[in-house]
């Protein structure tokens, strides 16, 4: 057990202990964001790159609450619907933060926020050529996942259900196929609603889970962040423990021999 706890999670050559990556959006304020991140035990946080409000330059900034030296900032391309927008955004993010590790997502549709895989593949190719380490949000199609890995993406992150839906892992068959074939970390990114969903993803063999809404929109985000931390650890441990086979009928746990 202790050995498994010490097992490292390696992304793009860097070791992490926590397998939970959390978003920093949708919180009441930066104070709550910081407390939730702390409770989650996450070492990597996703952040968005947006225009500065130059009319009000003194408003509080995320970096004042979450120290980029303590947490690995993972700039994302949330809200980008074309490869060009995503590439521009991440070039700016790299210049702003000075780090190469980024999360690429190119969305295809406002209603479903489903990834546009054609634009995603194009953006991934350009970014990897420019030296970015690309963690990529993608559909649960194993063929697309393999293509992204072959391009050089450092982590494959299929959705478990639509972004922000909290529906849980709707596609365990596809997720497992992607995990089986992958030689880079696979994380479920989107769809987790509560702790059991995170545990399920980890029990399937995922290397990690990325979430935002499930924590930020819980009644008590700090308590849910802690629950998610435990769920990811428990799911990982259960994956290694190897679950018992499912049976159709009952099987008593007490020996039948010596029964009076």
């Amino acid at each position: 057990m202790t050995e498994q706890k010490q097992e490292k999670f390696n992304i793009a050559g860097k070791d992490f202990t926590s397998r939970l990556i959390v978003g920093t959006g949708k919180y009441k304020d930066f104070e709550e964001t910081a407390r939730a991140v702390e409770a989650s035990g996450a070492e990597i946080v996703t952040v968005a790159t947006r225009r500065v409000n130059i009319m009000n330059p003194d408003q509080p900034m995320l970096v004042d609450y979450l120290d980029p030296k303590k947490y690995t900032y993972l700039p994302n391309t949330a809200g980008c619907f074309t490869a060009d927008d995503a590439i521009r955004t991440l070039r700016l993010a790299r210049e702003g933060g000075g780090w190469n590790l980024v999360k690429l997502e190119v969305l295809g549709d406002q209603k479903t926020l489903y990834p546009n895989m054609i634009e995603t593949l194009h953006a991934a190719e350009v970014l990897i050529k420019e030296g970015f380490d690309v963690m990529v949000y993608c559909s649960d199609d194993p063929i697309m996942a393999k293509r992204l890995e072959d391009l050089g993406c450092c982590a494959i992150m299929p959705l478990g259900a639509p972004i922000g839906s909290g529906l849980g892992i709707q596609n365990p068959v596809q997720i497992r196929l992607i995990i089986e074939q992958a030689n880079v970390p696979v994380l479920v990114d989107a769809g987790v609603g509560t702790a059991s969903d995170a545990a399920e993803a980890m029990e399937l063999g995922c290397d990690g889970v990325l979430m935002n809404t499930a924590i930020a929109e819980a009644q008590d985000p700090i308590a849910m962040a802690y629950a998610m931390r435990l769920a990811v650890e428990a799911g990982r441990a259960a994956y290694f423990a190897g679950r018992m086979p499912k049976k159709l009928y009952a099987d008593p746990s007490s020996p039948l021999a010596g029964l009076i």
């Binding site: 920093t24 790159t49 995320l62 700016l92």
Partner: peptide
């Protein structure tokens, strides 16, 4: 010019 910074964001 585009001047940007990091803000809270998930997806």
């Amino acid at each position: 010019l585009e001047i940007v910074h990091f803000i809270g964001g998930g997806k």
